[in-house]
Amino acid sequence: MPVSDDRPADYDLAERWDPVANRYVDALADLDEFLRVCAELTGFDVPELRSTGMADEHHRTTLAHRVRDGHALVHLWYVGAWPGEAPSSARARDQGLVWRTFRAAPPRAAAPDTAAPDTAGEGS
């Protein structure tokens, strides 16, 4: 079932979304459409966004805010927090796209793709 029957078949929500007029905001209520729009805005594809484990939480965060614009959505995905708010959890912060972009680990987190050093032979 389409989210809105009055949308043209070829519209692109990421390009035509007018947050000031609050047009097509109801389309973001659908998780798949939300992820498609976020993929367009962030430069990460939908599977990459899903792999963060934050899709549902970020979707709920977005729906909880009345004003939704592209900048706020990008901020949410990259930083793990809605603009002007603290991250909802350490996990949200740690899964921010900023760390993937720079191929770095968030502060106080294990570096990506590294194992803990083997210390079994130390001190003997």
Rank of each mutant, 00 (worst) to 15 (best):
M1L: 14
P2E: 13
S4G: 08
D5F: 03
D5C: 02
D6Y: 15
D6K: 13
P8D: 14
D10C: 07
D10Y: 10
L13F: 00
A14D: 04
A14Y: 00
R16A: 03
W17M: 13
P19E: 04
P19R: 03
A21V: 02
N22K: 08
N22M: 01
N22R: 11
R23F: 10
L28A: 03
A29Y: 09
A29W: 05
D30H: 09
D32T: 14
D32E: 15
L35S: 06
R36T: 14
V37N: 03
C38S: 14
A39H: 08
L41I: 14
L41N: 05
T42V: 07
G43E: 11
F44T: 04
D45L: 01
D45F: 01
V46G: 10
V46L: 10
E48S: 15
L49A: 07
L49P: 06
S51F: 00
S51C: 04
T52V: 08
T52F: 05
G53V: 07
M54G: 06
A55P: 11
A55Y: 06
E57G: 02
E57F: 01
H58I: 04
T62S: 10
L63I: 12
A64M: 03
A64T: 04
V67P: 02
R68P: 03
R68E: 01
H71D: 10
A72L: 02
L73P: 04
L73W: 05
L73F: 08
L73C: 04
H75A: 12
L76D: 05
L76H: 05
W77N: 01
Y78G: 01
V79Y: 08
V79H: 10
G80F: 02
A81H: 10
W82Q: 09
P83T: 04
A86Y: 00
A86T: 00
P87F: 03
P87G: 01
S89F: 09
S89C: 09
S89T: 11
S89K: 10
A90L: 14
R91M: 12
R91V: 14
R93K: 13
D94R: 12
Q95Y: 00
Q95H: 09
Q95D: 03
W99Y: 03
W99I: 01
R100M: 08
R100V: 06
T101C: 00
T101F: 09
T101K: 09
T101W: 06
F102V: 04
A104S: 11
A105T: 07
P106D: 07
A109D: 01
A110G: 05
A111F: 11
A111Q: 15
P112I: 05
P112S: 08
A115F: 13
A115N: 11
A116C: 10
A116K: 12
A116F: 15
P117A: 09
D118Y: 11
T119M: 12
E122D: 12
G123P: 03
G123M: 12
